[in-house]
């Protein structure tokens, strides 16, 4: 048994399996982000939805519900954003202009992917300054930074003041986007999903370990 969802695709109603719905949603989101810099983004999206709807019409005939197989067949025909190839936003003569426009729009639609320093709440001893700094500097193991701070503490105590100041000034990485910026990874849907997934895994591991501790 499967749950189904009612959707409106290009103005026509469809019944779609839940898993296929999620997949379709991801697919359309990926296309949208691919064209997010183009001026005709909404129109292209509508054209593609319309075509998708048409493909479903051809495929379905007597069938009532769109399954994963039907969806994959349609995606095969339409192609993924990677396969759209050069015919994206980066066309030869549009490229420099559109890029500049996006910059002048004051960051609208433009997601900054540069690195930012955050305190890392996932790997902290005191307040996550060292692991955040390690991530910012591209050092794999925050232990080295911690050792530096400890050694610095004995060499005159300046490191203590620096640490306290940093823990006040540097913000904590709260959202998934913050955590990606902390590591300098581009902020896009796939990466955010990955980060969130990791967090859920961490939480379930913590719960599992709590459970096993109780048993002992």
């Amino acid at each position: 048994m499967k749950k189904v969802i009612n959707i409106n695709l290009g103005g026509l109603p469809y019944i779609i399996d839940e898993d296929a719905y999620v997949h379709l949603n991801d697919y359309l989101d990926a296309i949208r982000s691919h064209f997010s810099y183009s001026e005709g983004c909404e129109e292209i999206m509508y054209d593609i939805e319309l075509r998708m709807s048409e493909l479903f019409q051809e495929q379905m005939k007597a069938k009532q519900i769109i399954s994963m197989v039907d969806l994959e067949a349609a995606i095969e025909i339409l192609g993924t954003p990677e396969e759209f190839g050069a015919e994206s936003t980066n066309s030869m003569y549009e490229d420099p202009e559109t890029k500049n426009q996006n910059h002048t729009k004051g960051g609208y639609k433009y997601i900054k992917t540069g690195k930012k320093m955050f305190r890392n709440p996932d790997e902290k001893v005191v307040s996550g300054v060292c692991s955040g700094l390690a991530a910012y500097l591209g050092i794999d193991d925050p232990l080295w930074v911690r050792i530096l701070f400890v050694v610095g503490t004995f060499l005159g105590g300046f490191a203590v003041i620096a640490y306290i100041l940093l823990s006040i000034i540097v913000p904590k990485a709260k959202t998934a986007a913050d955590k990606l910026a902390m590591k300098g990874e581009p902020i896009n849907i796939e990466n955010i999903a990955k980060t969130v997934e990791n967090e859920i895994n961490d939480i379930s591991q913590t719960i599992a370990s709590l459970g096993s501790k109780k048993k002992v």
Binding site: I31, F35, S38, E39, G40, E43, I44, D47, I48, R51, I77, L78, G79, T80, P81, E83, F84, G85, E87, S88, S91, E94
Partner: peptide
Amino acid sequence: IVVEGTLYPLLNRLKN
């Protein structure tokens, strides 16, 4: 073309 998705942005650009 290999995939249909290539055409829609192109048509849009030519129309604009």
